[in-house]
């Protein structure tokens, strides 16, 4: 098994995919860093101060005023209210919700890339892991060896999981290294609040506690990794089922993007919560944002994702061991 994994790893490295992915992440992180830097600057220029309490206070007032408008939808109103109460809580408890620094950048980057950007990167690797063997014709060579088919597939899957772990690590290292140039490398120990829960009556703050930022980021990474693994497994299954890499990628891409769109408008379609793509924003639960559909919790979303993961894995293995290859 060890040898098989090594072999798969070698193939992966030879394709230089990881380098391409690292380059893409690097370029985007540069863009995001610049955007964030600009945003902070204009904010400070507008208010004429860099005191975070003043800026947060002004944000609270602005949000309150947006809430008084009659033109905004109920859902949006609820989300705004949640943010508002959270901001006020941060202010009352004298904690800066976005302490400037590379660690905060990492946190924001992870929160925003968990449902689309990182899954896309994972897809680049996962979706042709098996189908490329078909198109290259090397699948026959691979299967003529005296190794059971499921072992071949398992070695590919383990390699995928390792590659995904690497991608997540690359994203973390690049965003830390690049954003640190602008925002500074310190701030791992600053407190951040977690434990907000959204109820019908508003934000429940009874179980809020503060964590050091490094721990919060580690948790974020764990959740991002889980999402990446699930999305990777689904693309892996498609790559087994469909010979054409492009078709498999298209399907995956469509469902990921539909998830991003659906999350904004499914609040009245309750059963949509069993779709994997509306459950991808796991980090929102830690942050305490309102879930897209009422009643969704972290454990619910993780369960849904795991069920999809298990089914995908099962389908992939069954189909690969049964399929005629010609």
């Amino acid at each position: 098994m060890n040898k098989l994994v090594q072999n798969e790893m070698m193939k992966l490295m030879a394709k230089k995919r990881l380098l391409v992915i690292a380059a893409i992440i690097g370029v985007l992180v540069i863009l995001f860093t610049y955007a964030q830097y600009k945003q902070v600057q204009t904010q400070q220029e507008k208010l004429g101060t860099s005191d975070w309490r003043t800026i947060l206070q002004q944000q609270i007032i602005d949000t309150t005023n947006r809430l008084t408008s009659s033109r905004i939808s109920e859902e949006w109103k609820k989300q705004l209210q949640t943010t508002l109460q959270q901001e006020q809580y941060y202010l009352d408890h004298n904690i800066n919700p976005s302490e400037p620094g590379a660690p905060t950048f990492i946190r924001i980057f992870l929160e925003n890339s968990i449902d689309l950007f990182l899954p896309l990167m994972v897809m680049v690797i996962a979706s042709d892991l098996v189908s490329s063997e078909h198109s290259l014709g090397s699948i026959k060579l691979l299967l003529t060896r005296p190794v059971k088919r499921w072992r071949v597939l398992l070695s590919k899957y383990i390699t995928l999981c390792l590659a995904i772990s690497l991608i997540v690590a690359i994203a973390g290292i690049l965003s830390y290294g690049i954003s640190g140039i602008v925002f500074g490398y310190r701030g791992w120990g600053t407190p951040i609040l977690t434990g907000f829960s959204v109820t019908d009556t508003g934000l429940n703050t009874s179980s809020v506690r503060s964590l050091p930022l490094w721990q919060f980021i580690l948790m974020d990474f764990g959740l991002v990794w889980l999402v990446a693994i699930v999305v990777g497994t689904l693309s892996f299954m498609l790559s087994v089922l469909i010979r054409s890499t492009a078709a498999g990628m298209g399907i995956m891409l469509a469902s990921l993007i539909s998830g991003a769109i659906l999350s904004n408008m499914v609040s009245s379609w309750k059963s949509a919560k069993y779709l994997f793509m509306v459950n991808l924003r796991l980090t929102d639960y830690l942050k305490g944002a309102a879930p897209p559909i009422e009643g969704m919790t972290l454990s619910f979303s993780i369960t849904v994702l795991l069920v999809w993961w298990a089914i995908a894995l099962m389908v992939a293995f069954l189909s690969f061991t049964q399929k005629d290859i010609y």
Partner: peptide, 14 residues
Amino acid sequence: GLGFAVHEYYAGGP
């Protein structure tokens, strides 16, 4: 990290 997240999310109040 994942284990941490799940554990922390269901830990009681402070």
